[in-house]
């Protein structure tokens, strides 16, 4: 037991130290690398807290995908970075920001330390009401049955995010193919990886979604793995990203949210409430929603990384 305590303490110190380093480091690129390492350590922390679902989400989305987006932003902002660093805000403003951040941290710490014992929890309520949903993983049960409205909003919010990315395209480039991915080096090891890995990655992604019903996993984690495989193929240059004017693409992007909303609205008549499932049909409906949502989320995540449409994608040879 004590050895576990030593490991946990070391882990907590590492996370705190790395967080401080990420905040205090000047170069954006170094900060992003530190942030990725921080996210992976956080995933281990979540595993130590027996929250494997959260750990997977943290590793796949919070670290992998967000890390890639931040790396891209850091690379794009690199030419302006020196000017930004030299024009730092005044001492007073910095101290105010520091004080406010410290107040938030202290407030959160106080709330955690002053929790009543036993801590208020809905876990028992969830465990009692899990059987009617037909799924065995309480996290999936909460996300898709008890708190379906949160999940719906989470899935829908990805679409405005993608619209935001697309909307920074230059006018003449609108409707074309996304152009933020790096240019492929022909004949590199990347090509081999992009040919060998996707079959396994797709299998793992589907496995994560399917397993999400009874074990840790789910559509967001599975969709991230699927999106990663797609991005790998795109970066290796084996396939071109689709043009954003493509109607089929747009239908696939929104079909997950549409099916979710459709089933939810049907619930008003069939189960007396928005987003309620008719008795006995909860499990198949949840599976159907998970399947289409996975497809839409994977596409959206991949296109978020692929960036806004660009003019001379891969023809002019500029990245």
């Amino acid at each position: 037991m004590t050895s576990a305590l030593v490991v946990d303490a070391a882990l907590a110190l590492l996370v705190l130290g790395l967080a401080l380093w990420v905040i205090s480091t000047r170069a954006a690129y170094s900060a992003v690398v530190g942030f990725v390492a921080y996210g992976l350590l956080m995933a281990i922390v979540w595993v130590r807290l027996a929250a494997v679902d959260v750990a997977m989400t943290e590793a796949a989305l919070g670290t992998g995908l967000t890390g890639l987006l931040l790396l891209g932003a850091a690379a794009r902002l690199a030419p302006y970075e020196a000017a930004e660093v030299s024009s730092r805000p005044g001492r007073g403003l910095r101290m105010l920001i520091g004080l406010l951040c410290a107040a938030i941290a202290l407030g959160l710490a106080a709330v955690v330390l002053m929790l009543p014992d036993p801590a208020p929890t809905l876990a028992l309520l969830v465990a009692e009401n899990l059987p009617p949903t037909g799924v065995g993983n309480p996290v999936t049960g909460v996300l898709l049955a008890h708190r379906a409205i949160d999940t719906l909003l989470e899935s829908v919010v990805l679409i405005p995010a993608l619209i935001g990315v697309w909307s920074v395209a230059a006018d003449p480039a609108w409707g074309g193919r996304p152009g933020s991915l790096p240019r492929p080096q022909s004949g590199s090891a990347l090509t081999l990886l992009a040919q060998v890995l996707p079959p396994f990655g797709i299998l793992i992604g589907i496995h994560l979604v399917w397993n999400g019903a009874d074990d840790p996993g789910g559509k967001f984690q599975g969709a991230t793995v699927l999106a990663a495989m797609w991005i790998l193929v795109l970066i290796a240059g084996l396939r071109e990203p689709p043009a954003v004017r493509d109607q089929r693409l747009r239908v696939l992007l929104v079909i997950g949210a549409l099916v979710f909303i459709g089933i939810g609205v049907a619930g008003i008549w069939l189960a007396d409430a928005f987003l309620a499932y008719p008795e006995g049909y909860a499990k198949p409906l949840i599976l159907a929603i998970e399947a289409v949502l996975t497809l839409s989320i994977a596409l959206t995540l991949g296109l978020l990384l692929a960036g806004p449409p660009a003019n001379d994608h891969r023809s002019g040879g500029r990245s």
């Binding site: 690129y29 690199a78 030419p79 090891a189 990347l190 990886l193 990245s319």
Partner: peptide, 25 residues
């Protein structure tokens, strides 16, 4: 690991004009 090693080594030993694209790094 093997793939990333190859890619990093390729980037590290690339001619200077490629480096000019990301000066800060």
């Amino acid at each position: 690991g093997a793939t990333v090693g190859q890619l990093l080594a390729g980037t590290a030993s690339a001619p200077d004009q490629d480096r000019a694209e990301t000066p800060a790094r």
